[in-house]
């Protein structure tokens, strides 16, 4: 079923706060085989001029998954979660975030595009990440919704 574009753009996502934890950053670093001690060792981070362990470039996506129901918007739009793929991901960075920071995430649907005569829809979700009043980063995900029942 096609996504109602006006409805998608009007969806309200409550902002939510996430505290960045050192232990979580270390676990993330280990899970990606990170060897740079700046991402696991507070002393090494401080020697490199950081005030704590820095949030690595793609961890902002993980912060988004801390939302109370990170995929609830798909249900609200009638999208079958089994039909989605992650198509694109973009990050823009204004500041470095650190362990100990409380970051506030605000999300919204910024675009819906129909492709291949309706066999595919692209849903763009934008997330602003702020600390206090300051922008830290912006994440933009393009989710591909497959409609295999629609022939091209």
């Amino acid at each position: 079923m096609a996504i109602d574009i006006a409805r998608a753009r009007a969806l309200r996502f409550p902002s939510f706060a996430v505290e960045v934890e050192r232990g979580r950053l270390r676990m993330f670093a280990r899970s990606i085989g990170e060897t740079d001690p700046v991402y696991t060792d507070v002393e090494a981070a401080q020697d490199a001029g950081h005030r704590d362990l820095p949030v690595p470039p793609t961890f902002f996506f993980s912060l988004g998954l801390e939302a109370p129901d990170p995929f609830g918007y798909l249900d609200a739009l009638g999208v079958d979660r089994r039909r989605i793929l992650h198509g694109r991901q973009r990050f823009e960075y204004a500041r470095t975030a650190y362990a100990g920071d409380t970051l506030v995430l605000s999300e919204r649907i910024t675009d819906v595009t129909v492709k291949r005569g309706g066999a595919m829809e692209l849903l763009e979700k934008t997330t602003d990440i702020r600390r206090g009043g300051d922008h830290v980063a912006r994440a933009r995900a393009v989710i591909v919704v497959r409609h295999p029942e629609v022939s091209e």
Binding site: P56, P57, G87, Q89, R90
Partner: peptide
Amino acid sequence: GRLLTGWVPQDRIRSFEVRF
């Protein structure tokens, strides 16, 4: 991301995007 931060300090990365 490791490729990039292994090359330059992270605060020099201004944007980063991929297509899967």
